[in-house]
Simulated scan of single mutants.
Amino acid sequence: MLFLILAILIPESPRWLTQKARFTEAREVLAKIGSSSYTSKVLTELKANLSVRHGSGFGDLLSLKPVLIIGIVLAAFQQWCGINVVFNYAQEIFTSAGFDIDDTLKSIVATGSVNLIFTLLALPLVDRLGRRKLMLFGSIGLTIIYALIALAYQTGTLGLPVLLLVLCAIAIYAMTLAPVTWVLLAELFPNRVRGVAMAIGTFTLWFASFVLTYTFPLINHTFEAQGSFLIYGIICLLGFIFIWRKVPETKQLSLEEIELKLNITAPVEPKSLQQSANEKQG
């Protein structure tokens, strides 16, 4: 109910409003974000970007395969990095680390608290440090911690050391991969296909979550705890390499500037926004 009530206060997207030739409303929304010069600059960019006639839907999206692949890989990686295993199978993980039921419940409370605290800490860091840096830090940080957790299980150094390492992993994830993936998915795709592309990215993320949740018991049974965390560590290392080579920095760039940076603007036959609106009304 609270979400429903607050959703009423969410302004309409200025890009959607511009696409529908509702320029006055778009200007009002932009004015809530920045100065008058910012509003004029962004509105001019929106008109220039959206006044070009593009294809739409899946056909146009397939022409942007490199960007689509980045979005799909990031969405899957956010889940396959393995952190949600800790939340979904906390009892099994902490029991295998030598905790009794009472200690396990306290550990579960600790993991949730750390997740909340470090998610809040991530809010100012996204724009201050940049998306790419946070994603790189998160992936390599989890790689190292998973290797240490696997080593702890292998050597029998369980109990508190494992709990502290798990909490560190959750803290890093909450500051980096968890929120920043959603930011990047919303920024990478050009205006004309953003709706369809975000739908594909979101589907990929939750399908990956299903696969992760379903396969962990099988992996844990086959490779035991140390092998499971080692596998997730390897996935995080591969994610680090992918982000390093393929993911651009989008900090302090408008969506239109990101399009130009990624060279994914595909102009075809010019067509005015007003003309498009008139045709739709007709």
Rank of each mutant, 00 (worst) to 15 (best):
V180R: 12
V109W: 10
G233E: 09
G59E: 05
T176F: 12
L125P: 13
G34R: 03
M198T: 02
K246Y: 15
S113D: 09
G141R: 09
P267L: 13
L205M: 05
V114M: 07
K251C: 09
N220H: 12
V247L: 14
I264W: 12
S37T: 10
T181H: 14
Y173A: 00
I170D: 02
R53Q: 10
R22S: 02
L105S: 15
V67N: 04
F229D: 01
F58H: 10
R15N: 06
Y173P: 02
L177N: 11
I144Q: 03
E187I: 08
E28V: 04
L30N: 00
L238Q: 10
L160H: 03
G55E: 08
I140G: 11
A277V: 02
Y232R: 06
V193S: 04
I72S: 02
L262T: 06
N84T: 00
M198F: 01
A186Q: 02
G82M: 08
F189G: 04
M175V: 12
M175G: 09
A208E: 00
A150C: 10
F223Q: 00
P14H: 06
L61Q: 01
I243A: 13
F216M: 14
Q91H: 14
T95P: 13
I101W: 13
K280F: 09
L2C: 12
V114H: 08
F118I: 00
Y38P: 11
L188C: 02
Y153S: 01
L116Y: 08
T18R: 06
E279H: 06
P270C: 07
E279N: 08
